[in-house]
Amino acid sequence: MEEGEYEISRRSVLVSSAVTATLAAAGVSEAQPLPKALAPADHKVSFVVNGKGQAFSLDPRITLLDALREHLHLTGTKKGCDHGQCGACTVIVNGERINSCLSLALQHEGDEVTTIEGLGTPEKLHPMQAAFVKHDGYQCGYCTPGQICSAVAVLDEIKRGVPSHVQAELTRAPTPTNAELRERMSGNICRCGAYSNIAEAMADVAEARV
């Protein structure tokens, strides 16, 4: 379709929906063949996942999330939205939690990645996992690995003095109050609504640490 045809159709769509019109995708650019030169020249990258070195040859488009799920079959890390809007894909990279869906695998050369599988196992739960069990901090379980990775990282962030939106005094060291935990966990959506229980599970673990 010509550019001009689209323009007419768009106007007709905007002005009057009664007009029968053709409408193509109004994307950035029209469809075009993928250049052959750019066929997935496998890119090499290595990083450590749960203490184990992993070397990949990857399509450059693969996210850290899909590298974990589809290549290493570490499916504990979940894909909830694939756009950084839910937190289900949270993993800990070099000690900091991130959304693995918004990170290309290639960006992680040499990094140390910890996923839910690296925190604990059914036989040997991490204290945070055990606290989630005790307080029923999950229902369907889909957001749970992300919540737990985030929860572990949040307690560490509080310990390191990373500030938050609800801190009254920016220059004081934060403490794991209910308001602090809830604000810091807000990047992890739970549609089943286990939030109240998750905050209590985290408080248990935070208290045990002190």
Binding site: G84, G87, T90, E96, R97, I98, N99, L102, S103, S150, A153, V154, E157, V162, P163, S164, H165, Q167, R184, M185, S186, G187, N188
Partner: peptide, 11 residues
């Protein structure tokens, strides 16, 4: 700290 989420701010 009013923006995004902890995960996003780390990256």
């Amino acid at each position: 700290v009013a923006g995004a989420s902890g995960q996003l701010r780390n990256k």
